[in-house]
Design a protein around this nucleic acid. Structure first.
Lengths: 222, 222
DNA sequence: TTTAAGATGAAAGTAATACTATTATATTTG
DNA sequence: CAAATATAATAGTATTACTTTCATCTTAAA
């Protein structure tokens, strides 16, 4: 996909101060993505990030109230970006099946190029989504956070693809289950293929994950 | 399932001292399951557990070297128990389809009764598996731990069910992906249905999750 | 050009976590 | 009954995830 002059806008309740609005903010986000990838979310701290960007811990807290909040911001950025790409690959496609196919490919494929849409490296961000995003919603605060709309963007993506499923088969009972199974499943399979290969059948270089989930979707809704 | 006089045996490398071998050990495991459920894994600490069982933090460390190790123990206990039940519901079933069907039902259904097989409450343990198990394998130590066989029991269950898939369709390319997708998917759907319902189509009281995944499996392998 | 508002930095402090280490006291076993 | 083993009590450590306070630096309007 070619780079357009677009920008992913993130709603104000995902940050204390908009990181996209300042140099320091962008630096915080950019380097946090790198560091979370390198260290994992647990070992990543605002102190270490501060040292890495030559800034102070307390300054970072002016943008994000906690490292959990930063992760939620990143997750929402990711889903906003996916939503944008989803609209892009499904607009003006007359065939409902082709539309859904494009959507499933988008949701299950590897991210291999940084589109330079922004100050965010999408390849690394996708890796964070795969390895760390479950830590954002497996908390005891999930219910309160869900009410505040923390997972709205993700839900919207699921809703859009579910509608495509219903376009093809209006009587299919479980479109949301199917779509969220595919999304979470693809993430798991990518993680397993790298770390617990006995749980997958992934051969490196082949697009097995995309093919598996595409088949799964079309067979189960027919 | 009726209670048999069986016991789930856990391999020695999952503990420092076998909790099944002493009263204190059983107390540690029993109460840790309760507390992890109440507080979530993050807020659960050995200190709190010690207070709850009227014992000392340092005594708990003699059984498990860390709270992560305790979680890995619980996960292995769960999968050993599932493996036992899996063998139970698939033995002496001549039809390959019925066998696989029984397996999928077992993997996707809710656990509603504590079988009293042991000192472990399986209903609560299943909830921990759903909410917390991903925290065990989403660590930076995953590769080392996988090599040490930390996830062997889980892999064995996936392998058994994958074989059943191949019995029905020997040319199916992705049996492990299918089975791990179903297992992880069912856990996610149960979690989502309680906390982020927009991501599912689950109606309370109905066995939608079981039905959805059973259909999914049989449609995709046919 | 001054000024004052806002952004950032430096430094110190806090409560809690996830352990470890040491020593004392029970309890069991041979 | 002694020795071995299990458990408890206590204290200590390094780190985390923040918070607070105050100083300084920047910048943009008066």
């Amino acid at each position: 996909m070619q780079a357009l002059n677009i920008n992913i806008t993130i709603e104000p309740h995902f940050f204390t101060k908009d990181p996209a609005s300042t140099d320091l903010g962008k630096k915080i986000v950019r380097h946090s993505i790198e560091m979370i990838n390198e260290l994992g979310f647990e070992a990543f701290t605002f102190r270490k990030l501060g040292v890495a960007i030559g800034s102070n811990e307390s300054s970072i807290y002016r943008y994000f109230e906690s490292k959990h909040a930063l992760l939620v911001y990143l997750i929402n950025w990711y889903w906003s970006w996916i939503e944008y790409k989803l609209v892009f690959v499904t607009t003006n496609i007359p065939s409902a099946k082709e539309k859904l196919n494009n959507a499933i490919v988008l949701l299950t494929q590897e991210t291999i190029e940084d589109t330079n849409v922004s100050f965010i490296n999408e390849v690394l961000l996708h890796k964070i989504i795969i390895s760390e995003s479950s830590k954002a919603y497996h908390t005891c605060d999930i219910d309160a956070e869900n009410e505040k709309g923390f997972y709205k963007t993700y839900k919207r993506v699921v809703q859009r693809v579910s509608s495509m499923v219903l376009e093809i088969n209006p009587s299919f009972e479980f479109p949301h289950m199917l779509v969220s199974t595919v999304i979470e499943g693809a993430h798991h399979q990518r993680y397993f293929s790298e770390h617990i290969p006995a749980l997958t059948d992934v051969v490196k270089g082949k697009n097995n994950i995309v093919r598996f989930y595409t088949d799964l979707v079309f067979k189960s809704i027919s």
